[in-house]
């Protein structure tokens, strides 16, 4: 058959049995598949155990009658700086990274579906699992510090914004990089945890600075490397998320699939 040749009657009948796959359908398919792929008991138990560090630390600080600055610092460092990105990394990196590595991605890639709903669906599934495991302990930690003064809603807002951005960025890692966990940990621990602490300029390219800024804005605490306005603290991570997912969709469409 040449490009201009009409389809045979058999082919037309077959085509009639196949409709087009809408973006919404592709999103739901990817979301469901990835959600079930990611739901492993070991992963959930391990990450929940890690996340419990936050409320335990909050409780310990609360019993010591610490200041607001100490409480905000704890939530920012342990909750927003460790628990949130690590939990996001494990789920979001694996969302498409695991499919790529175990060679099941072909079953989604080879279908007549746009790439972006697959990526957004996979990221959505990762966020669905990461949200309760990361956000609840962070908010609980904020509450247990007993610091009051807006720390709980501030922690909630910062966690939600941070989760969206981290999940998107680490979904991109999973699409693009073979050792996405290693690269993700390097980003969290070395870039955000070490290099970005060196100064305000470098910190601009660390998501942590934006989530810290939200927390500081909502509490009025005095914390270093957290001087963005609330609008910047929210908008920039969301823009980063959109860009990361767009790149991930492009990359998914252009890379080799095993």
């Amino acid at each position: 058959m040449t490009p201009d040749a009409p389809m045979s009657i058999d082919d037309q009948q077959r085509a009639a049995r196949r409709g087009s796959v809408s973006a919404a359908t592709a999103f739901v398919i990817a979301y469901r598949v990835v959600l079930r792929q990611l739901t492993s008991r070991g992963r959930i138990i391990g990450l929940t155990a890690l996340a419990l560090i936050a409320p335990l630390s909050g409780w310990a600080l609360g019993t010591a009658d610490a200041s607001l600055d100490d409480a905000v610092s704890l939530v920012a460092s342990v909750g927003l700086g460790l628990v949130l990105p690590v939990v996001s990394l494990v789920f979001a990196g694996a969302a498409i990274g695991d499919l790529r590595e175990d060679k099941t991605l072909v079953y989604l890639w080879l279908r007549p579906m746009d790439r972006w709903p697959i990526v957004v669906g996979a990221a959505g599934a990762a966020a669905t699992l990461a949200a309760p495991i990361a956000i609840v302990p962070i908010v609980l930690a904020a509450a247990l510090t007993g610091a009051g003064n807006g720390i709980v809603p501030g922690a909630l807002l910062a966690s939600v914004v941070g989760l969206i951005a981290y999940v998107a960025v680490f979904t991109l890692f999973g699409v693009w990089l073979k050792r996405f966990i290693v690269w993700g940990l390097a980003y969290i621990l070395i870039w955000e945890g070490f290099i970005a602490q060196a100064g305000a300029g470098v910190a601009r390219v660390a998501l942590r600075k934006y989530t810290r800024s939200i927390l500081v804005d909502r509490t009025g605490a005095d914390l270093e490397l957290a001087d963005f306005s609330l609008a910047v603290g929210i908008i920039v991570p969301l823009v980063v998320a959109v860009v990361a997912l767009a790149i991930a969709a492009w990359r998914l469409g252009s890379q080799d699939i095993d």
């Binding site: 196949r18 796959v21 359908t25 398919i29 079953y107 279908r111 007549p112 579906m113």
Partner: peptide, 8 residues
């Protein structure tokens, strides 16, 4: 596979 291929 059917749904992702748009099978009616």
């Amino acid at each position: 596979a059917a749904r992702s291929s748009g099978v009616v």
